[in-house]
Structure formats: structure tokens, C-alpha cells
């Protein structure tokens, strides 16, 4: 196996994910509707309740819609990461994960390709969201649309790797409601997506600490700063480390030798 084989394999996996994406228009639609509902309805209702003071990276008073936009971008990726992990479980039951895993290329490489393919799809979704949000006055500096891309790739990787790890580790991952309740909601609400953390600190120090430790908070902050052409180094480091950890766990989970996968494949 030479680099060209690796490259063809990578292209093939991304290409398949793209084709599936094109065929699953309902999935795309719901991926769009979800953040837009938050933006159009939730934010409208909450803008008067929640005053946001000037905190970096913002240099002026902002509307609540502007505040939650980065959180909604991260939410798209969170859902996407969990959904693709669910589809991996579904795939495995349907057996198409097996098709992937009998490839002669190293398993870690196959998993990373699969992950990157999922990230590519989530990035497309985020930009589609941004196009609509633009008309809702979510208008970052134009350069922000560019600088946010690496942040989206990294946060997408982190969330995708988390989903992949969960798909290898959790036995009962059959229904999405379970993931919603136990992963998506806690991660989303215990983060800086909907409210700045200092507000949380006023309510409860413990909750503040939990929110601070939540990797999703740092994904949101990374995206938020990048959206305005800035780098939040702390969040960048946090997300990078979390990505490596989750990815390591995912590869461990799918390792044929230690195989958490064994338990599930049994019977």
C-alpha cells in the first residue's frame, strides 16, 4: 500500500459520504431547520430577557441572535457528529461498516477518513446556515467567514470523534432519543452556546465549572472567536487535546484486538 492507495481510499470514502448526503435531503433539511428555529424563535423570545454585556470577541453591544450564532454552528456539528456515529452503529448492524473494515488499509486510517468525510458534510451544513443567517443580521466581518473554517474543521473533528467513540463503546445506541437526552442536551445546555459563562457563575459555581470543563464550550468559543478573525488560544488548545483524546478512544474502541466492538458484534 503506497500513498496513492491511501489517497484513493480517502477520496472514495469522502465521495460516498457526499453521495449519501445528497440522497438524504431530509437529513439536510432537519439539520437546517433546527438551528434556524433557535435563531428565529428562541432568540427572538429571549433577547429581551437576557442582556448580553460586552465581552470578547465582541467590541460593542450585540443582539442575542448574534451571540448564539456560533453556538448554533457548533450545534449543527454536534448533531452531525452524533448522527454519523449513530449511522455507524446502524451501518455496522447493516454490515456496511464491515465493508469498510475489511479494507486492507490500516483501521485508524479508515476511521479518520470516515471522520473527515463527516466533518466535510457538517461544514457544508454550517455554511448553508450562515447564508440564511446573514439575512437575519448575523454578519461577521467577511474575513470571519474564512477564518472560521479551520475552527469548524477542528471542532467537527472533535465532535465526530466523540460520536465515533460513543458508537464503539455504548451498547444501546439504537435510538437517537437516548443520545439527545444523555449527550446532546447536556453538552449543549451546559455550555456557552446560549449564555455567557459569567451568567452561569452567578447562579452556581459548580455549574460554571462543569460548563467550563465541557469540551463543547470550547468548541463554541473557538468558533466564536474565529468568526471574528481572532484566536482563542485556550479553547484552541482545549479542543485540540479533546480531539486527540476522543480520536484515540475511538481508535481503541474499534481496535480488533482489544475490541469493545467484540461485545457488540457477538451473538
Amino acid at each position: 500500500m503506497t500513498p496513492i492507495h491511501y489517497f484513493r481510499c480517502f477520496v472514495g470514502i469522502v465521495w460516498r459520504e457526499g453521495l449519501r448526503f445528497v440522497h438524504q435531503q431530509e437529513r439536510f433539511l432537519s439539520a437546517m431547520v433546527r438551528p434556524l428555529v433557535w435563531l428565529f424563535i428562541f432568540a427572538a423570545g429571549f433577547r429581551s430577557v437576557l442582556g448580553v454585556s460586552i465581552i470578547p470577541p465582541y467590541e460593542t453591544y450585540i443582539t442575542y441572535e448574534v451571540y448564539i450564532a456560533p453556538g448554533l454552528m457548533a450545534m449543527i456539528q454536534l448533531f452531525n457528529g452524533m448522527q454519523s456515529s449513530l449511522s455507524m452503529v446502524y451501518d455496522r448492524e447493516m454490515g456496511s461498516m464491515r465493508t469498510l473494515l475489511v479494507s486492507p488499509l490500516p483501521r485508524w486510517f479508515l476511521l479518520v477518513c470516515k471522520l473527515l468525510a463527516g466533518v466535510a458534510v457538517s461544514v457544508i451544513q454550517v455554511y448553508a446556515f450562515l447564508v440564511i443567517a446573514w439575512f437575519w443580521d448575523i454578519q461577521p466581518p467577511l474575513v470571519g467567514l474564512l477564518t472560521v473554517l479551520p475552527a469548524l474543521i477542528l471542532s467537527g473533528l472533535m465532535l465526530g470523534a466523540l460520536g465515533m467513540f460513543l458508537s464503539s463503546a455504548i451498547k444501546q445506541l439504537e435510538n437517537f432519543a437516548g443520545i439527545m437526552n444523555f449527550v446532546i442536551f447536556p453538552m449543549f445546555f451546559a455550555s456557552s452556546a446560549l449564555y455567557p459563562l459569567w451568567k452561569m457563575k452567578e447562579s452556581s459555581l459548580l455549574l460554571y465549572n462543569i460548563c467550563w470543563a465541557n469540551p463543547f464550550t470550547h468548541a463554541v468559543e473557538l468558533i466564536r472567536f474565529a468568526f471574528y478573525g481572532q484566536i482563542n488560544w485556550l479553547s484552541l488548545a482545549y479542543v485540540a487535546v479533546a480531539t486527540v483524546v476522543f480520536l484515540g478512544l475511538a481508535i481503541y474502541g474499534y481496535d480488533p484486538g482489544r475490541g469493545l466492538i467484540t461485545r457488540k458484534a457477538g451473538a
Binding site: 500500500m1 503506497t2 496513492i4 492507495h5 491511501y6 484513493r8 481510499c9 477520496v11 472514495g12 470514502i13 465521495w15 460516498r16 453521495l19 465493508t99 469498510l100 479494507s103 486492507p104 488499509l105 479508515l110
Partner: peptide
Amino acid sequence: QNLHYHAALHGISR
């Protein structure tokens, strides 16, 4: 498309 996907997994050219 299914066969192309499999070929790619084996590093076979298009």
C-alpha cells in the same frame, strides 16, 4: 457507485 466505493477502499484507481 457501490462497486467504485469498494474499489477505492482497496486503493484501486478509478
